[in-house]
Amino acid sequence: MAAGFAAGPVALGSPPPAAVPAATVTVAPVVAVAKGTPPAPGAREPAVDGTRYDLAALPVVDVFAVRPELPVDDDPGGDLTGLVAHPSGAAAPVFAEPGTAPVARLPRTLQFGGTTVPVVVQHEHWLRVLLPGRQAPPSSGDPGQLTGWVRAADVEVAPAVAQVEVDLTARTVDVVRGGERERVSDGFAWGTAATPTPVGRTFVMTTRVDRSFAFTRGHPIVYLGVQSPTLDGFSGADVAVTAFHYHDVRTGPVSNGCIRLGAEALARLAELPEGTPVTVRA
């Protein structure tokens, strides 16, 4: 399954399950480049930008957004910094590159999540983050994991509480906390050759329960920030979001890109806050 919204197979109209904690974001000091995707050789530290922008004039970057101005992750197999960012005000301007005009805004709250995002490059004044939405649908461009730059002054930065690692070859799902690895699943179903599970780094966008989807049997759906590499939309929706979800049939390459898991594994993943980094390896 490639999870859809609104008219799609998974309408995000239900509130998140009570057992799923909201993302807790506290201010942490921003230092020079941490681990994560390193800057280009010889690259200079981006200059501070103290401009006050008209945020209301900027389009929102959310799960439905198609923002051709924003770059796709050019290092999907790269490291993560172990940090997440969240707008400190009503919204944070989003830039394609430091030193340019903003092209979008990331609100502090969104109906379908995606406002707490992993940091993949960290400078003193700027952070490159993973974002919801797409640069383009697959029929007209690159639908890979969207990224953008935010100013450090516009966000609160905190350590990620955990990281999820998925290995499509080994069929394993691990949750890593403080260097300790927990194996939450050693078997699952994944995408077909025509509708593959997207690989690379992404994040938990939101977690919800929708009992109208009988195949989930009331278990939570953990939506990710990345969408299908081959589907423009799904079941009438104009988005095709990848997710972890329950299904009775959860062996082999049978889904539209989602990872089908058992109940116990879903329960563990549903405990993770929004913004938790996820890496999927082939």
Rank of each mutant, 00 (worst) to 15 (best):
residue 2 A to F: 08
residue 5 F to D: 14
residue 6 A to M: 05
residue 10 V to K: 06
residue 13 G to E: 02
residue 14 S to N: 10
residue 14 S to Q: 11
residue 18 A to E: 08
residue 18 A to W: 10
residue 19 A to N: 08
residue 22 A to T: 12
residue 26 T to C: 04
residue 27 V to E: 14
residue 28 A to K: 07
residue 29 P to Y: 07
residue 31 V to W: 07
residue 31 V to Y: 08
residue 34 A to Y: 01
residue 35 K to N: 10
residue 35 K to I: 04
residue 40 A to G: 07
residue 41 P to G: 12
residue 42 G to S: 10
residue 43 A to P: 03
residue 48 V to L: 10
residue 48 V to H: 04
residue 48 V to R: 14
residue 49 D to M: 03
residue 49 D to T: 06
residue 50 G to T: 13
residue 53 Y to W: 13
residue 55 L to P: 02
residue 57 A to E: 06
residue 57 A to Q: 07
residue 62 D to T: 04
residue 63 V to R: 14
residue 64 F to V: 12
residue 64 F to Q: 14
residue 66 V to I: 15
residue 67 R to I: 12
residue 68 P to Y: 13
residue 74 D to G: 13
residue 75 D to W: 03
residue 75 D to K: 05
residue 75 D to F: 05
residue 76 P to K: 13
residue 78 G to W: 01
residue 78 G to R: 03
residue 81 T to G: 08
residue 83 L to Y: 06
residue 87 P to V: 03
residue 92 A to C: 05
residue 92 A to S: 14
residue 93 P to M: 06
residue 95 F to C: 08
residue 96 A to H: 09
residue 97 E to V: 12
residue 98 P to L: 09
residue 99 G to C: 10
residue 101 A to L: 10
residue 103 V to S: 12
residue 106 L to G: 01
residue 106 L to C: 01
residue 110 L to A: 15
residue 112 F to D: 15
residue 113 G to Q: 07
residue 115 T to Y: 01
residue 116 T to L: 05
residue 116 T to Q: 08
residue 118 P to R: 11
residue 118 P to E: 11
residue 119 V to L: 02
residue 124 E to Q: 15
residue 125 H to W: 12
residue 126 W to Y: 07
residue 126 W to F: 05
residue 129 V to F: 09
residue 131 L to A: 11
residue 132 P to W: 03
residue 133 G to Y: 02
residue 134 R to Q: 15
residue 134 R to H: 07
residue 138 P to N: 07
residue 140 S to E: 12
residue 143 P to I: 05
residue 143 P to G: 09
residue 144 G to W: 00
residue 145 Q to E: 10
residue 145 Q to K: 07
residue 145 Q to G: 10
residue 146 L to P: 06
residue 147 T to H: 05
residue 148 G to R: 02
residue 149 W to S: 08
residue 150 V to C: 06
residue 159 P to S: 13
residue 161 V to I: 13
residue 161 V to D: 11
residue 163 Q to N: 04
residue 163 Q to H: 12
residue 165 E to V: 15
residue 168 L to E: 05
residue 169 T to M: 06
residue 172 T to I: 07
residue 173 V to F: 03
residue 185 S to W: 00
residue 186 D to T: 13
residue 188 F to N: 02
residue 191 G to W: 00
residue 192 T to S: 15
residue 197 T to G: 10
residue 202 T to I: 04
residue 203 F to G: 02
residue 208 R to D: 02
residue 208 R to P: 00
residue 212 S to V: 04
residue 214 A to C: 09
residue 214 A to G: 11
residue 216 T to F: 03
residue 218 G to N: 08
residue 220 P to N: 12
residue 220 P to F: 10
residue 221 I to M: 15
residue 224 L to C: 11
residue 224 L to A: 07
residue 224 L to V: 09
residue 225 G to F: 09
residue 228 S to E: 04
residue 228 S to G: 10
residue 231 L to W: 01
residue 231 L to Q: 14
residue 231 L to R: 14
residue 233 G to P: 03
residue 234 F to Y: 15
residue 239 V to A: 04
residue 241 V to T: 15
residue 243 A to R: 06
residue 248 D to Y: 08
residue 252 G to T: 04
residue 252 G to R: 01
residue 255 S to L: 01
residue 257 G to M: 00
residue 257 G to V: 01
residue 258 C to N: 06
residue 262 G to Q: 00
residue 263 A to H: 01
residue 265 A to D: 02
residue 268 R to K: 11
residue 272 L to F: 06
residue 276 T to R: 05
residue 277 P to Y: 13
residue 279 T to Q: 12
